[in-house]
Design a protein around this nucleic acid. Structure first.
Lengths: 197, 197
DNA sequence: TTGATTTCCTAACATAGGTCAAGCGCACGC
DNA sequence: GCGTGCGCTTGACCTATGTTAGGAAATCAA
């Protein structure tokens, strides 16, 4: 039996915990395939993030405004889970936007449904803890990098982990994500290119 | 009935989920009171963090070495949970040290025990999720601050949230934690003092 | 107390990254 | 097709932070 929209999610979860057919049904029944064009805002400032999204294809980001300027806070790509985490987790109105950078094919599930899965099914509870641990470790590493690496080191590391971002994510978002201005990223890229020759 | 060493932890958890007498016993039976003098290393590089600590009194930090220099990565204070999170979560050898900054009175519990509580008791599972969410939100905020605030803003914010750090945590650790060199923190402090006059 | 060590501050200089202003090139709508 | 705007780059200059060196002040051991 084939579930084209859900296959990637099933494979990902199967790699974390053993997923039997019963649970495949749960995934297909609860995760709704949705598609959005580039630039769509899935969460707006002051609204509440009610869905968790799984990325089948496309690129998403969250951003907020600081002194009238956009700050890109998270960037995510296929096989990742994405939402406006601050609002989703707390249930409070979001101070950031969740936006499709490119056209996106996603699966979405309402927070209450997902939490109910986590609460009532031990396999899902295990997956929840694994996903949360990944998030914690990822954020810890990002913090360490911001504290102790130069902007150039952070750019090169992003390139290494996500070479696809270069062709799919505008440089100004990447600049903001690694914590520098677009002009500085330009200079860094120029410098990196000259070193590579 | 009084459990002097465990009272703070019981109160904290009671604020998250309802704790009945059965669970108080679980806390008393599973969390072991321990005390260490200043400078004690609870986790060393290359060893594995097997315990989660709850801080009854005292200050702890984690640090690692980058280019031969200490980088203070986390600082924590009473009523917080602390460990070398990277190693504890992954089970891999730690790349950082967990150190008592001051004399400390702690409660400790082995990872397997704590996870077993989380797995087998719905109230503990709820507490686990709440604690994890706090960690995620805290780290997200720290990342945002590192990206979009100046060192002075980060220092003032730390002062506001943790005025007690000034008297209990050496400035060099605070400097490292907010991502600047000690000399820069000195300048910032001088500047802040002159503004306050 | 005294000497030794660590912590903190200061100052002069160096550099990464920010700011401002301008220009290029490409995509998109008219 | 042709502006027009947006994304990206560049250059000149500025500022915050790093670096290096040294000295004052606090802390600790004997």
């Amino acid at each position: 039996m084939d579930f084209p929209h859900h296959q990637k999610l099933i494979s990902l979860l199967a790699a974390m915990v053993s997923i039997d057919d019963f649970n495949k049904d749960i995934i297909v029944q609860n995760f709704e395939p949705v598609s959005y064009p580039k630039r769509t805002l899935l969460v707006k400032e002051h609204s509440i993030a009610r869905y968790m999204y799984f990325i089948n294809s496309g690129y998403l980001r969250t951003y907020y405004f600081k002194d009238g300027l956009e700050v890109t806070d998270q960037i995510n790509c296929p096989l990742g889970f994405m939402t406006a985490f601050g609002s989703y987790t707390s249930g409070n109105p979001s101070h950031e936007y969740l936006e499709c950078i490119t056209d996106c094919h996603l699966l979405r599930i309402r927070k209450e449904k997902l939490e109910s899965l986590f609460r009532h099914n031990p396999q899902w509870a295990k997956a929840d803890r694994i996903i949360n641990e990944h998030i914690v470790l990822y954020n810890a590493r990002r913090t360490q990098d911001l504290v102790s690496k130069t902007a150039e080191e952070r750019y090169l590391q992003l390139l290494k982990c996500h070479p696809d971002y270069i062709h799919n994510v505008p440089l100004q978002y990447i600049a903001s994500f690694i914590g520098v201005k677009p002009e500085s990223l330009s200079r860094i890229r120029k410098n990196v290119a000259s070193l590579a020759i």
